[in-house]
Simulated scan of single mutants.
Amino acid sequence: MFMHTIWDVRGCSLEISTNSIWFSVEYRLSPEYKYPIWLNDCIEVTKYIIENKTLYGETSTKVGVAGDSAGGAIAAVICHTLKNIDFQILVYPLTNMLASFPSSKRFTDVQYGLIPILRHWFNDNAIRDGNDMRDARVSVIFQSSFTGLPPCLFIVAELDPLLDDKYQKLLDKAGIKTKLVLIKGVIHSFFHLPGIFPKSCQQAVEAIRDFVAQV
C-alpha cells in the first residue's frame, strides 16, 4: 500500500519513518498573497495529487493531508473541500481566529513563542479583513457540518496558547475517529525545532508513523 501526504512544513521528512511519500506544498505566502490565494494553491495541489496518484503509486494509494499551526488549519479545510481524503494530521492547528482560549490567556509570556501580539500580526497579514476571520475556510470551526471527514491525528503542545482549541471535540461529536497526542513541556512550533526539542520531535514523528500505519 502506498500513502501520499500533503505537508506544509518545509524541510520536514517523514518518508522513511512512515514508508510513504510526502509532498511539501510551496503555496504562495502572505503578506504578498492574502486569503484565499494560499488556500486555493493548497487545494489545487491536493486535487492534482489525487487525480494523478497512479504516477506516484497505484490505484489503491491513500492520500492524506497534514500541517502544523496555520498549515494544520489549511489541511483541515482541504478535508471539508475535497471529500476523497483518507486521513488528516493536524499539529497544533489554528482552527478559530476569533477564539480566546483559556490557554491563550495562560501562555502570554514571550517564552511561549506565540504571544498575542504575534498571533494578531500573523492574522492581519494572512487575511484581507475582519470578515475573513469568520469565513469557514479560514476558521474551519465555523463549518456547517463535520460529518464525512477522514480520521484525524491531533498533535498538541502542552505550553501552547492554542492548547484548548475545541476542533477535536467537534469531530468526536460528529463521529469522526480522532486521536490526540499531547507533547509535554514544549511550546507552539516545537516541531520546527528538532535541534532544541529532539526527543519531543521524535515522539511526534513516532505518533505520526503509528497513525499512518493504522489508516
Results as ranks from 00 to 15, higher is better:
Ile50Lys: 07
Ala66Ile: 05
Lys173Gly: 08
Gly72His: 06
Ile176Arg: 04
Ile6Pro: 02
Glu15His: 06
Met97Val: 02
Asn19Arg: 14
Lys177Phe: 11
Ala73Glu: 04
Pro150Leu: 03
Thr95Ala: 07
Lys62Ala: 05
Thr59Lys: 12
Ile85Asn: 03
Pro31Met: 09
Phe142Leu: 05
Pro116Leu: 01
Ser103His: 04
His192Glu: 12
Ser13Cys: 10
Leu98Thr: 13
Pro36Trp: 07
Ile155Ser: 03
Asn19Lys: 14
Gly185Ile: 10
Met97Leu: 15
Ile141Ala: 08
Ile141Asn: 09
Lys177His: 14
Phe211Pro: 06
Leu118Cys: 00
Ile187His: 02
Asp164Pro: 01
Asp41Asn: 15
Ser60Trp: 03
Ile176Tyr: 06
Gly130Arg: 04
Phe154Ser: 08
Ala174Met: 04
Asp68His: 13
Thr5Lys: 03
Ser100Phe: 00
Asn125Lys: 13
Phe101Trp: 15
Asp165Lys: 06
Ile49Phe: 09
Gly175Thr: 13
Arg134Thr: 10
Pro102Lys: 08
Ile141Lys: 04
Leu39Tyr: 15
Ile85Cys: 02
Leu14Gly: 13
Ala76Arg: 05
Leu193Cys: 09
Ser13Pro: 00
Ser139Pro: 00
Ser60Ala: 11
Ala204Trp: 12
Val63Ala: 02
Leu55Gly: 00
Val186Asp: 05
Gln202Asp: 14
Asn19Pro: 01
Thr95Ser: 13
Ile6Gln: 09
Pro102Trp: 04
Ala76Met: 05
Ser17Ile: 11
Gln143Thr: 06
Arg106Met: 13
Gly57Thr: 04
Ile74Cys: 06
Glu58Gly: 07
Ser145Asn: 13
Gly71Ile: 01
Ser139Trp: 02
Ile176Asp: 07
Asp129Ser: 15
Asn131Arg: 14
Ala75Tyr: 03
Ala204Val: 12
Gly175Cys: 12
Asp132Pro: 11
Arg119Glu: 12
Ile176Trp: 06
Val77Arg: 09
Thr59Cys: 06
Glu206His: 13
Ala75Phe: 06
Asp164Glu: 03
Thr61Leu: 01
Leu171Lys: 12
Asn131Glu: 14
Lys53Met: 10
Cys201Met: 08
Ser145Ile: 02
Ser24Asp: 11
Gly71Tyr: 10
Thr178Cys: 09
Ile141Gly: 00
Phe2Gln: 14
Ile117Lys: 13
Ser20Lys: 08
Arg209Gly: 07
Ile50Gly: 01
Leu180Pro: 08
Asp41Ile: 11
Val9Asp: 01
Asp135Ala: 00
Ser145Thr: 09
Ala213His: 06
Asn131Val: 00
Cys12Tyr: 13
Leu163Gln: 05
Trp38Ile: 02
Phe107Tyr: 15
Gly113Trp: 05
Ala174Thr: 11
Ile127Tyr: 10
Leu159Lys: 12
Gln202Phe: 05
Asp109Arg: 01
Ser144Tyr: 02
Ile155Gly: 04
Ile208His: 05
Lys105Trp: 00
Trp7Ile: 10
Glu58Tyr: 01
Ile16Leu: 11
Pro31Glu: 09
Ser24Leu: 06
Cys12Asp: 14
Asp132Trp: 06
Phe101Asp: 09
Tyr35Trp: 12
Ser24Pro: 02
Ile89Phe: 09
Arg134Gly: 10
Ile6Gly: 11
Val9Met: 08
Gly71Pro: 07
Tyr56Met: 08
Asn84Thr: 13
